[in-house]
């Protein structure tokens, strides 16, 4: 069991996560966008487009304008999620002494790291609670919610709770051991995982989350870019400039309006040449 969880599962999870996510995104991108789906108002200049993208990605502008409560909850959740992920990366690699790079003493850096990490974790748990409450308390949203929406929220909540558990006295995890273990996974020479119950639970839950990710709505983190790119496309210019790339085969298929009732259609039947 320990062998499977500690030395096999992480590789399966990482493999499924990477391959599944890539396959799905490639599947989206391989399909053509036959028509301009530009949604106005659309900026034409490149900086305007960058701002439109960035303001949606970093501060969720649409939600800010139209649904302030949902905006606050999701923003808190996503920001603390990003902070926590960065915190894991740097905190484990530098053993919580990353802030020493900015001139803090090693002790102060460890203190700072604990405070920041703990706060982010608690805020994340609260915002997840808020999002869950919203799904239960608002009749429209309750009816819209599907089991998978709750599953995703509960799974992330469980990961966060098991993570924050390690802050409790008596359950502290020895960071150098964790770093050694994760390093062994990365170098493909897996050691046995640290013997600490909250850590093992946290680790297994993260693996489940990674396994589930490509099949879940959490793919919206990438779908966001695919959709926004379509909506922000610059509208066409007429007459069409030479060397404009053909958008899809739909445009090239020949039909003749003079002969409408012939049984040719462009997207599911054979097309006779004009």
């Amino acid at each position: 069991m320990e062998f499977f969880v500690g030395r096999i599962l992480p590789y399966i999870a990482a493999g499924v996560f990477l391959a599944g996510t890539c396959l799905r995104v490639i599947g989206w991108l391989r399909t053509p966008v036959p028509f301009h789906l530009t949604l106005y108002p659309v900026p034409v200049k490149i900086f305007g487009k960058i701002w439109a993208f960035a303001s949606e990605f970093f501060i969720f502008r649409t939600l800010y304008r139209h649904d302030r409560v949902l905006w606050l909850l999701t923003l808190l959740f996503h920001v603390t999620l990003a902070l926590t992920l960065a915190g894991h990366l740097f905190g484990i690699y530098f053993l919580r002494e990353q802030f020493a790079l900015f001139g803090l003493g090693p002790g102060a850096s460890r203190q700072m790291s604990r405070i920041l990490g703990g706060t982010a974790g608690i805020v994340m748990i609260c915002s997840l609670g808020g999002l869950l409450y919203r799904r239960i308390a608002m009749p429209e949203v309750k009816r819209l919610s599907e089991p998978e929406n709750f599953l995703a929220l509960l799974l992330i909540l469980a990961v966060a709770l098991s993570g924050i558990f390690m802050y409790l006295p008596g359950y502290h995890i020895d960071l150098p051991t964790v770093r050694t273990y994760l390093g062994s996974l990365l170098s493909a020479t897996p050691l046995s995982p640290p013997r600490n119950a909250p850590f093992v639970i946290h680790f297994v839950l993260v693996n489940i989350l990674l396994l589930y990710f490509p099949f879940s709505r959490m793919m919206h983190s990438i779908g966001f870019f695919v959709i926004r790119t379509m909506l922000l496309e610059t509208p066409p210019v007429y007459p069409t400039p030479a060397n404009t790339r053909q958008r899809s085969v739909f445009a090239a298929k020949k039909v003749s309006p003079e002969n409408p009732a012939s049984s040719q259609t462009t997207f599911n039947r054979e097309v006779e040449p004009r």
Partner: peptide
């Protein structure tokens, strides 16, 4: 035929922001 169908169906998180 169209990318929009799969991407737009598969990414909805059912947050309900569209109802109003």
């Amino acid at each position: 035929l169209s990318r929009s169908l799969s991407v737009m169906l598969e990414n909805c998180t059912r947050c309900g922001a569209c109802a109003e």
